[in-house]
C-alpha cells in the first residue's frame, strides 16, 4: 500500500510538469487552433533563462551584494524568467505564426517545429555541449510519512503548478481579456469585427503560454537539475498529447490530461515490467481516443476547422 501512495506522490510531481507545459500548448491550440511545436523548446529556453538568473542572483548573494534567501531567489527567478520568456513566445508568434495565419494549419506547425530546432541548435552553438546544473536554491528536506517519502520540493512543485493552473483558469473565465480569448476560440472570423485585434490576442496567448512554460522549466530544473538543449523535446511531445487529449477549448482539461498522462506512465511502470511502459501507456492513450474521439472535454468538430 505504501508503494501505491509513494507512486501517487511521484505521479503528482511528474504530472505537474506535463500539466504546466500542456497548458501552454492548450492556450495556443484552443484559442488560435494552432499546434505550437516550438513550445517544448520554449520550455527549454525558459529553463535556461531561469538558470542564468538564478546563477546571477546566487553569485550576487555569495558576494554579499544582495544577500537574499534561497526561496526568495527562486520566486524572483520564476517571475523574471516568466516575464522574459513571454517575449520569446511573442517573438516566435511574430516570426513563425503571424505570417502564416491564412496558410494551412499544418504549415504553421512546421514553422513551429523548425523554430524549435533553431532554438535547440542555437543553444548548442552559443553555450556549447556542456550540460548545466541548475543551482540548488532550496535546501532539500525529505519527510518520511509512514513509509512514503515526500520532499519539500515535490510539495512546492505540485502546489505551484496547481496555483498557476487555477490562476490561468480565473484569468480566462473572469477577465475581459480572457473573454476576448474565449470569443476568439469560438469564432476567429467574427470577433475581429467586434473590435478585438486578433494580433493582440495571439500575442497575449503566446506570451501567457510561454510564461507558463518558463515556470515549468524552472520547476523542472529544481526537480531534475540537469539542463541540456534537447531537454524539451520528449516532454514537449508528451505535453502535446496531453493538450489534445484534454480537448479543444478546455484549458482545465489540458491540465487534467497532463496529470492523467503522468499517472498512466507512473502506474504502468509500477504494475507492469517497466520495459513495457511506453508501449502500454500509449496504447491506453490510443484507446481513450478511440472511445472519446474528441478528448475529455472537447466539443465535436465543427465545419470551421481550417486544415
Amino acid at each position: 500500500m505504501g508503494e501505491f501512495f509513494q507512486n501517487l506522490v511521484n505521479a503528482l510531481q511528474y504530472g505537474s510538469f506535463l500539466a504546466l507545459i500542456a497548458l501552454g500548448y492548450s492556450m495556443v491550440y484552443s484559442i488560435l487552433m494552432l499546434f505550437n511545436f516550438a513550445h517544448g523548446d520554449i520550455f527549454m529556453v525558459g529553463a535556461y533563462i531561469g538558470f542564468g538568473i538564478a546563477t546571477l542572483l546566487v553569485t550576487l548573494a555569495s558576494f554579499g551584494a544582495l544577500a537574499l534567501p534561497g526561496w526568495l531567489i527562486l520566486v524572483l527567478t520564476i517571475i523574471i524568467s516568466m516575464f522574459l520568456t513571454s517575449f520569446v513566445g511573442m517573438l516566435v508568434e511574430r516570426i513563425g505564426y503571424r505570417p502564416l495565419r491564412e496558410a494551412p494549419r499544418a504549415s504553421a506547425a512546421i514553422t513551429g517545429l523548425m523554430i524549435g530546432i533553431i532554438l535547440e541548435t542555437g543553444n548548442l552553438a552559443l553555450l556549447g555541449a556542456k550540460r548545466v546544473s541548475f543551482p540548488a536554491l532550496i535546501e532539500s528536506a525529505t519527510y518520511d510519512i509512514g513509509g512514503v517519502f515526500v520532499t519539500n520540493k515535490k510539495i512546492m512543485i505540485v502546489f505551484v503548478s496547481i496555483i498557476l493552473t487555477l490562476a490561468l483558469h480565473q484569468f480566462v473565465t473572469k477577465t475581459k481579456w480572457g473573454m476576448a480569448m474565449r470569443a476568439m476560440a469560438f469564432d476567429y472570423l467574427v470577433v475581429p469585427l467586434m473590435g478585438v485585434s486578433i494580433n493582440t490576442i495571439a500575442r497575449l496567448t503566446f506570451a501567457i503560454g510561454s510564461a507558463l512554460a518558463a515556470a515549468a522549466g524552472i520547476l523542472y530544473g529544481v526537480a531534475y537539475p540537469v539542463l541540456e538543449p534537447y531537454m524539451g523535446i520528449i516532454v514537449g511531445w508528451k505535453a502535446f498529447v496531453a493538450a489534445i487529449l484534454g480537448g479543444r477549448g478546455s484549458i482545465l482539461g489540458a491540465a487534467l490530461a497532463g496529470f492523467l498522462l503522468g499517472f498512466i506512465e507512473i502506474f504502468v511502470a509500477m504494475i507492469f515490467p517497466s520495459t513495457f511502459r511506453d508501449l502500454i501507456a500509449y496504447s491506453i492513450v490510443l484507446l481513450i481516443l478511440v472511445f472519446r474521439p474528441h478528448g475529455f472535454f472537447g466539443e465535436p468538430y465543427s465545419a470551421k476547422l481550417r486544415l
Partner: peptide, 9 residues
C-alpha cells in the same frame, strides 16, 4: 528525467 516509479520498485 523522472525515475521515481522505478526507484520506488
Amino acid at each position: 528525467r523522472d525515475f521515481s516509479a522505478q526507484l520506488t520498485n
